[in-house]
Structure formats: structure tokens, C-alpha cells
């Protein structure tokens, strides 16, 4: 049996009168990519923020590496990392300076070696001295991803990492992530609005709608259950509330 890295039990978040996440329970296993999908406002990002300890849940428990997040956040986050296309790196710093700052924050040993390695993996070695504000969106995404691997995390939270990338760069980014997962057996929680990407990337998916889990399983099984051709069609069915 696979070892659960993340265990979520009855997670609930209410903002004023809106139940953004409603008694959600799931696990993420070692070396697994779990895709969180659903229409806007489904609760994907809120769940991710709660797993990072950035938003406090109203109810429920999150355990990561077998330890309650509420009590052991610092130790847990030391072995986790995060990347979002909607969060930037300091734009007046160079690529290398950004990575140096985060290497210190995560107390990385052999900082220089790790930074050099990541710059090469993400093919941003040639722009190491370029200011973040002068980077293209593809380069910024690769920098964000490089930062998210600075501490060799065991669990990675990726919030729409390929949003706003052109198809070529998005494809390269996906391949790179799969390669990293294969090499380091990292677990990844992944959100995206690109259903093709979710099918391609995820070992398992969780379909959310208005804060509730409405389907869970391997992408092929979820598609079968909804009697649709692909996840895109499942998404449209859910978003247009044919049944939900």
C-alpha cells in the first residue's frame, strides 16, 4: 500500500455566508500527481491555501507527513513548496538573486550548487543576471518552478503553473514536471483549467463543484463515470450544472 503524504479530513472553509470548501476529504500518496479541477469558485485554490497554512480552515484536519499541519506547519513547510502563476518573484531582483533569497529562506545546504543545477534544468542559466521584470511570462514561470524545487520538496503545490504560457512552453513545462516527478518521486497537488493538461499530468483527479467533491479517481474512470469523451466535456457538464 502506498504511503499517504497528505491526509485531508472534513476540510471546510466558510467566507461570510459562502461555503467555499465543504467537508472535503482526500489523500495524496507518495510519488503521485493529484489534479484538483473544477470551475471557478469550486474551491481548488482555497484548498491549496489551507494545505499551505495560509488560510485557516473552519473545520477539518490536515496531516502532512503524518503530522498535523496546524501544530507542525514550519517543519512541514520546510519539506514542501509552492508555485503559482499568479504570484511573482521580486521584480527588481535578478533570477539568481531570487533563488539565493529563497535558498536561504528554506535553509538549503550547498546553495550555489543547487541554484546552478536548477538554472540548468529549467534552461534559465543564460538569464541568471536578468531582472525578473524583464523576463517573459514563460521565463517567469520557469523561475517560479525553479524556486519551488529549491529545497527538494517531498510535496509540491502547483496552482495553475502553465496558465498564460504559450502551448510550446506549457508543453515543455509539463514534460519537465513529469521528468522531475519520475526522478525524485515527489508528490504534486496540481490545479489547472486546462483539461487536456489534467488528463496528461494527473495520476488521479478530484473534481470539485461549489466546494464539494463530486468525483474522484483516475482521469479515465471519471470520464467513464460521466459518460463523456474527455475531461473537457466532463468539465463543461459540471460547469453548466446539468446535474449539479
Amino acid at each position: 500500500m502506498l504511503e499517504p503524504i497528505v491526509e485531508v479530513e472534513g476540510l471546510t472553509k466558510v467566507f461570510k455566508s459562502l461555503k467555499a470548501v465543504n467537508k472535503v476529504s482526500f489523500s495524496i500518496y507518495s510519488g503521485e500527481i493529484l489534479g484538483l479541477l473544477g470551475p471557478n469558485g469550486a474551491g481548488k485554490t482555497t484548498i491549496m491555501h489551507m494545505l499551505l497554512g495560509l488560510t485557516t480552515p473552519n473545520e477539518g484536519e490536515v496531516k502532512i507527513f503524518g503530522r498535523p499541519l496546524a501544530k507542525h506547519r514550519k517543519e512541514i513547510i520546510q519539506e514542501a513548496n509552492f508555485s503559482s502563476n499568479y504570484v511573482s518573484m521580486p521584480n527588481s531582483l535578478t533570477v539568481k538573486e531570487c533563488l539565493k533569497v529563497f535558498a536561504r529562506l528554506y535553509q538549503v545546504k550547498n546553495k550555489e550548487q543547487k541554484i546552478t543545477e536548477l538554472l540548468k534544468i529549467f534552461e534559465i542559466d543564460d538569464i541568471r543576471n536578468k531582472l525578473v521584470r524583464h523576463l517573459s511570462s514563460g521565463q517567469q514561470t520557469r523561475l517560479n518552478l525553479a524556486k519551488s524545487l529549491i529545497n527538494d520538496p517531498k510535496i509540491l503545490f502547483l496552482d495553475e503553473p502553465t496558465a498564460s504560457l504559450d502551448p510550446d512552453i506549457a508543453d515543455k513545462t509539463r514534460r519537465l514536471l513529469q521528468l522531475i516527478k519520475k526522478k525524485s518521486n515527489i508528490s504534486i497537488l496540481y490545479t489547472s483549467h486546462n483539461m487536456k493538461e489534467m488528463e496528461e499530468m494527473s495520476d488521479r483527479i478530484i473534481f470539485l463543484h461549489k466546494g464539494n467533491i463530486i468525483a474522484e479517481g483516475r482521469p479515465a474512470d471519471v470520464i467513464k463515470r460521466f459518460k463523456r469523451k474527455d475531461l473537457e466535456e466532463v468539465f463543461l457538464k459540471v460547469a453548466r450544472e446539468e446535474r449539479y
Binding site: L54, I77, Q78, Y86, V87, S88, Y106, K147
Partner: peptide, 18 residues
């Protein structure tokens, strides 16, 4: 505010920084 303006705030608090 520098961290807020550069939209880097979340990256900082998603790290072990207290």
C-alpha cells in the same frame, strides 16, 4: 509594501518564514 507591490508576499509566507 515592497513585498506587496511585487506580488511576492505569498511566496514568502508559503515558505517556513514566520
Amino acid at each position: 509594501l515592497e513585498d506587496v507591490w511585487s506580488r511576492n508576499f505569498l511566496n514568502l509566507f508559503a515558505s517556513p518564514l514566520g
